[in-house]
Write a protein that binds this DNA or RNA. Structure first.
Lengths: 346, 346
DNA sequence: GTGAAAGCGCTAACAC
DNA sequence: GTGTTAGCGCTTTCAC
């Protein structure tokens, strides 16, 4: 079957191509009976509007770009993170007949901005979803802005008012986790911070502080140790904390990898979890369930966030009334076995 | 800067648009001095050829589609698999100014074929990379063929001569692994088969048989147990095998998840690895390194395979002399701690 | 409600 | 080597 065009459909339905176009694009001003006739012709011919022709004429494509930090640089532990983003965006695309273009980029390299600009100017996607930590980087955001491509940022550090953002209640949920630990009877709750490059991770520290305050516990700098998001750094931090004369009875790490590191340190030092030490993380990576005891953590609704981001882009594409504000998608606390009532304390 | 077109460049360089087109597309028949002038004009105006216009006129886009089994159906353990495919394809795309479209599809659902056809007919990608297990499914392959889109299949079951395929030496490497186990002194080497839906997994059994033969060991049906690729099925199979009067001293599972299941069964039954039992898997998933003792396994060079697939598509796009044959990318045996000389045997 | 005509920005075929 | 002329298949504008 040689591919049919809008002309073939028009001829078969006995209307003009403009009417076919109206039907295809669900525009108003078509009589129901006409619409039916056109739809029948479309089905009969197996007509598919050509994407390139459409984009060329309308100056907007049916493509959404997903831009995220290139995992090549990371040795792939972020696979779950990326797949969740993709799945969320795809869910939204699928129901709207859009396709998803992926564009990981390594912000550490020269030329990223140029490549990104090239993508936007050549491909002209209907919009871009920019994931953290790229969503915090001014030069990336500016480059996108310069091309005029609609953009939604996921979990940006500061909620810069000029762009539409999708974020979680990171800080609040971390406060909640801290309160939960306090409610279990813990008095010395430590926190391990992450790589300051990821702004989202920084906000988690503030949440921890909020939680202490809400629970009537004093904040102490001694209970905050710096990590760099890696398992190794968590292990080092755990050793440092557990080696003290008065070790904490609970450790809340800014991400799961570091929490797992803490568990390793505890295991090596013969500290029982959760009997002697409660451990909590953030992210709910796959490893969190596989580790023993299973890690209490917080799940970022990444998939829902990406879906929301894509939906916003699609709406903007249809209505075009500007993308502003911040949409909050709530994070979820997953209580598992690594937390419990601590040992009796002085 | 209002976006400039090929006309602007032509005017500035004092040539015709066709000459600009030649320069942009690296076509021959342009004098070096002319080319330089045009390139200067392009740089000066920041000209970018419009992707849609190009695709429309040339009837081929600068997009490559990557089609794989939808992980939604799988609860995401396949994240690493997918990311590796994507990374490989992206490596090839990047150096050729192509973009990558991802299209996971759930072959269990009705309407996949229709959606895939729609993708191909509307978007007209320059080519499709079809990953296993989809690459084995006749109705999927046929649907792609019907649209005339160039397609490369990754790890298809049977090497159907009409398409270009990229595969690994699955069977050979499984024979090698079996020989390695035999060389360690194992006489009773068991094999756990996987989901027969994945043809690649079936070939692994043949490799195991080859290996036995090469090592002068007899094949016994009793030493082959069926699994379904899941950890749970590996655990069940392991229990069954280890519960025998003469249990095997080595178990080779057709994938890592099942191998991990075997390790769990061994741990529960108090069987020491590798002192009493050697365990080997296939895939080199992340868990393989995290498990204790670390799993001996086989790594499929997925990334290299996807890169090769994309490169073939790009070449076909340029030269167009037909895609045939099979490219083999060699798999790698990773010997870790779960295998060793077995116990002395009768 | 519907249609005719004029492009969108580029490549292809062929002329020179 | 280089330019001219037609489209590619659609949307847009505006007329009816």
């Amino acid at each position: 079957m040689p591919k049919s065009t809008i002309f073939d459909v028009a001829k078969l339905a006995g209307v003009s191509i403009k009417t076919v176009s109206r039907v295809v694009n669900r525009e108003p001003n078509v009589r129901a009976s006409t619409r039916e006739r056109v739809e029948k012709a479309i089905a009969e011919l197996g007509y598919r509007p050509d994407h390139s022709a459409r984009s060329l004429a309308s100056r907007r494509s049916h493509l959404i770009g997903l831009v995220y930090d290139d995992p090549a640089a990371y040795e792939l532990p972020s696979a779950g993170y990326i797949i969740n983003l993709q799945q969320g965006a795809l869910e939204a695309c699928r129901s709207n007949r859009f396709e998803l273009l992926i564009h990981p980029c390594d912000y550490r390299k020269k030329g990223v901005v140029a490549r990104l600009t090239a993508l936007l100017e050549e491909t002209r996607p209907a919009g871009i979803i920019l994931a953290a930590p790229l969503s915090n980087m001014a030069r990336i955001v500016r480059a996108i802005e310069a091309t005029g491509t609609p953009c939604v940022r996921i979990s940006p550090g500061k909620e810069n008012g000029n762009y539409y953002c999708v974020a979680t209640n990171d800080r609040e949920v971390c406060a909640e986790m801290t309160c939960y630990l306090a409610s279990l009877g813990h008095k010395r709750i430590a926190f391990i911070t992450g790589d300051p490059e990821h702004k989202a991770v920084t906000r988690r520290l503030s949440g921890y502080q909020d939680g202490l305050q809400q629970s009537g516990l004093a904040f102490s700098e001694r209970l905050v140790v710096a990590g760099d998001n890696s398992i190794g750094s968590g292990e080092a931090a755990g050793e440092k904390l557990l080696g003290r004369k008065h070790p904490p009875t609970a450790i809340f790490a800014a991400n799961d990898d570091m929490a797992v590191g803490v568990m390793r340190a505890a295991s090596r030092l013969g500290v029982q979890i959760p009997a002697q030490l409660s451990v909590a993380g953030f992210d709910d990576i796959e490893l969190a369930r596989q580790v023993y005891p299973a890690l209490t953590t917080i799940r970022q609704p990444l998939r829902a966030m990406a879906r929301q981001a894509a939906l916003a882009l699609l709406e903007e594409n249809r209505e075009g009334n500007g993308l502003r504000g911040t949409e909050i998608v709530e994070a979820l606390i997953k209580i598992r076995e690594s937390t419990g009532p601590g040992p009796d304390q002085d």
